[in-house]
Computed example of a mutant assay.
Amino acid sequence: MAPALGLGALLALLGVSMGQPKVLHSLRYLQVAVTEPSPGIPQFLSMGYVDGIPITRYDSERGRKEPLTLWMAAGAKPGFWDRGTQINEGNQLIATANLERVGGRYNWSGGLHTRQRVCGCDLLSDGSVRRTLRIGYDGRDFISFSPETGTFVAADGAARITQRKWKSDGYEALQPDLAQSCAEWLQKYIGYGQEVLERKEPPDVHVSGKEEHGILTLSCHAYGFYPGMIRINWLKGDELRDQETEWGGIVPNSNGTFHSWARIEALPGEREQYRCRVEHAGMPEPGIFAWEPESIWNSIPVLVTVSVIAAIIIIGLVGVGVWKLRSGKREGNGYDPAPTRITA
């Protein structure tokens, strides 16, 4: 069975791969089509992203391609939005037809079914362009383009029908040209939003650990970074432990920055051997971070408890002192303090 094409995979596709060479900028279009639209869930939705930032939207309910950033609205030439609307209307017809066609191969019998398509390109640090195209149905991989081999990869027998057709129709051979066209549009969009897209905000990195059932789970979180290209790796000594690492997606925040994480399991006795390595364009050099468990006296719960106890003791002592003063006055011991006004 083909692996699931879940939200984490889609978000990763909207962001940046952790491979080499380094990704400078990325353009993605995410299209989602459904067989049974409902209020709030249009039959067809298309979102455009530059470096993980949503820049355009089209859905079948509104029926028009629209900008999602001020710099896209200001930079696009006259006719851009009308032409984009026409393209998306055509894409909707294609997606609907493909849902019906592929549904016949899988013997669907009604119900809700979905088609997800992610396409775009990356501008790489070596000057090359990498093409991305991936299609899934009902959240599972169907077919994808491999830039390494220049061929389409089918997930199952139903997808191999499409694979053979695209090869014979010349669509497979067209991918390098589509990559170059995508890169030209990406360069235009970068020009529209250069001030925003080329800023650099380093991540705030936090490492934590949790021991349970004899296993120590170490988590390395990176918050508030931009652009959305980051490498987070766990090291044991000087050795990368990517095979044992679980990564979260590069997820956008509401303020235009991103967050991500990497997690690894270790033996408690080997804790000091593990380090988190974070590399980002906003950092002068890669940072190395370790988990520093708090001592019991420095932990927040203990400090709060100690503070509460201390406050109770102080209040008690003050109360005893006031009681003694009042008792002494009643007994006529000669002590008659002047009236005082308590101030904060």
Rank of each mutant, 00 (worst) to 15 (best):
G6E: 12
G6N: 15
L11R: 14
S17C: 09
G19K: 08
K22A: 15
L27C: 01
Y29D: 06
Y29C: 08
Y29A: 08
L30T: 05
E36D: 09
E36F: 02
G40I: 04
P42T: 03
P42N: 05
Q43Y: 07
Q43I: 00
V50Q: 00
D51Q: 08
G52M: 04
P54F: 03
I55F: 11
T56I: 10
D59F: 02
R64E: 12
K65D: 10
P67A: 03
P67C: 05
L68Q: 14
A74P: 01
K77W: 07
P78I: 13
D82S: 12
I87H: 09
G90C: 04
N91M: 11
L93N: 14
I94D: 12
I94R: 12
A95D: 00
V102H: 05
G103C: 04
G104C: 03
R115N: 10
Q116M: 09
R117F: 11
C121L: 01
C121I: 01
S128N: 13
R130C: 04
T132V: 15
R134C: 13
I135C: 06
I135P: 00
D138I: 04
R140Q: 12
F145W: 06
P147L: 02
T149C: 00
T151F: 07
A155C: 00
D156C: 03
A158V: 02
A159D: 02
R160I: 03
T162F: 13
K165H: 07
W166T: 00
K167S: 10
S168E: 10
E172Q: 15
L174Y: 08
Q175M: 15
P176F: 01
P176L: 01
L178I: 10
E195F: 10
L197F: 05
S208W: 06
G209T: 04
K210C: 12
E211M: 06
H213F: 07
T217E: 08
C220H: 02
Y226F: 15
M229K: 14
R231F: 06
W234Y: 02
E239I: 11
W247R: 14
W247E: 03
V251Y: 10
P252D: 04
P252Q: 03
N253A: 08
S254Q: 12
S260P: 01
R263C: 06
E265C: 08
P268R: 03
R271M: 09
V278D: 01
H280D: 00
H280C: 02
G282L: 01
F289H: 15
A290G: 09
W291F: 14
E294S: 13
I300Y: 10
P301G: 06
P301E: 11
V306S: 06
A310H: 08
L317T: 07
L317H: 08
V320L: 15
L325Y: 05
S327V: 03
S327I: 00
G328W: 12
K329L: 14
E331K: 14
G332A: 05
N333Y: 08
P337V: 00
P339N: 07
R341F: 11
I342A: 12
